[in-house]
Every structure is written in C-alpha cells, then in structure tokens.
C-alpha cells in the first residue's frame, strides 16, 4: 500500500453571485478524497459538477469556504507562508487548465509558459540545458519544435496549445498533476500518445495524476481509480470495472447508459 500524498477533509466551496438577490452555489460540497502516490485517479462528472473548482482549491489558488487540504502533512491553506513555501508547493502540485486557449497570454510567444516552468524548477531557460529541455518537452508531446516554439498562441491550434501545456507539466514533473480535460482538443488518432505520457509519468516518476474529464470512456481506460462527481459531491468511488459495470448510484447508471459505444448499437423505438 503506497502512502497518501494529498487528502481533503470536508472541503466545501460556496460561490456567491447575484446583485440584488444573492444566489449561493455549492460548487463543492463536503468532499473527502485521498490521493496516493503514483496513481492515476479520474475525477469524472458532467459539466458544472464542481471538478474544476475542486482542482483550483487543491492548487491553492481558490480559497475554500470550509474544510482542509493536507499535502504531505501540511495544511496548505494554513501552513504555507510566503512565496518560498508556495513555490515549493507549486513545484510539487501543478495543473493543466481546461481551456487551452485561456492558458496562454496572447501577448507572449508560447515559449513563455515553458520558460516559466524551467524557472520554477530552477533552470535558466536561456542556458543550454534549459533550451535543450524545452525542445525535448515539445518533442515528447509529439510536436515539432520549429513549428511551435517561437509562435504566438493564435498561430497554433487548440490541440497544439493543449500539448504545449502538457509539455510544461512534463518539465515541472510535479508529485501531483491536476490535469483538467487535458486531451479534449486532440484528435482521436493522436490522443493515445499523450495519454500514454501520463501513465509513463506515473510509472517512472511516481507522479499522481488527477485526471479530470467528463468522458467516461477515457476515465475507464486510463485510470487506476475513479471518482464520480455529481452536484459538488463525490457520489461513487472505486475500481473502474466496479464503478462502471456495477454502479451503485442511479445517476451513474443513467449516465453510463448515455455514453455512446463503439461495438454495440443502441436501440430506439418510435
């Protein structure tokens, strides 16, 4: 049994919106999860179920309304003080955000995001080593450096940008990688290579990957463990076979029935 890397206790986030009449949205509702070292855990659930909100709290950029997040024995919202502690944390916990276009500041070349990653791990991006690593990272995700480095974000496709973000994660090599829909823009025929990379990070670097997706098929194929999120709560958790082929919760059952299958055809009646 490997050890727990990060856990959350009664984690809750309530958003307040509305101007005259306040509306409260419980985006994350009393969530207790534990992530172990070197596992790929899928967090699956439909749009608006609170997946990204949970990830942002774990990344320590969104303050929880209540509850705790413990990473290697440290309560991240209480015990981390100053930029030095935070940098340590972000070296260990990194993210790939959902929308590849939003990941890039349009005023800078895409290289910037990779240079930032090198700076974070203490390598000068202009040094020989830095440059080499950058090219290597881009090649690892199946892009050609001369076609992508030195370009502005609007000159690249969503799929290319998404892969550059994965290259960034590959440079940082965090202990915990929060991957929010990391392959949503990739073509079916190339997606497999990138997914393999996550598994490689797990096996070779002992990385824990929190793989966030609404694609149940993907979750089923890549993960060691599945968590199903519904209206801010984790309603089901366990082994992929168990969760998908013997679901306990009505909602999970219903969703699974709507996932299109390749080898089986649905039957409709008039």
């Amino acid at each position: 049994m490997s050890c727990v890397l990060l856990e959350t206790k009664n984690l809750t986030k309530i958003f307040e919106s509305g101007f005259l009449r306040k509306v409260y949205i419980k985006a994350v509702d009393n969530v207790d999860i534990a992530l172990k070292e070197a596992e790929v855990v899928s967090l699956a659930g439909q749009s608006g179920s609170g997946k990204t909100t949970l990830a942002k709290m774990i990344l320590r950029i969104l303050e929880p309304t209540s509850g705790e997040i413990i990473f290697q024995g440290k309560n991240i919202w209480r015990d981390l003080k100053g930029l030095k502690d935070l940098k340590w944390y972000w070296r260990n916990v990194h993210i790939i955000f959902q929308n590849p276009f939003a990941n890039f500041n349009p005023f800078y070349k895409v290289d910037r995001t990779l240079r930032q990653a090198l700076e974070l791990i203490g390598i000068d991006p202009d040094s020989g080593e830095g440059k080499k690593l950058m090219r290597e990272a881009v090649e690892v995700v199946g892009l050609r450096p001369d076609e992508t480095l030195g370009k502005y974000p609007h000159q690249l496709s969503g799929g290319q940008l998404q892969r550059i973000m994965i290259a960034r994660a590959w440079i940082v090599r965090p202990k915990l990688l929060l991957a929010d829909e990391p392959v949503s823009m990739l073509d079916v025929s190339t997606r497999g290579k990138i997914l393999e990379l996550f598994l490689k990070l797990r096996d070779e670097q002992k990385t824990t990957v929190l793989f966030i997706t609404h694609d149940f098929g993907l979750a089923y194929v890549v993960s060691d463990r599945i968590m199903i999120m519904y209206k801010g709560k984790i309603i089901e958790e366990g082994d992929p076979e168990e969760v998908f082929f013997n679901p306990k919760h009505e909602y999970t059952k219903e969703l699974i029935e709507s996932v299109p299958t390749l080898y089986r055809r649905w039957k409709f009646d008039l």
Binding site: V188, G192, Y220, V221, Y263, R264
Partner: peptide, 8 residues
C-alpha cells in the same frame, strides 16, 4: 476509446 471492456 469507449466505455467497453474490449477497449480497456
């Protein structure tokens, strides 16, 4: 990739 045993 789909939610089917063949695929896994």
């Amino acid at each position: 990739i789909s939610l089917e045993p063949e695929v896994r």
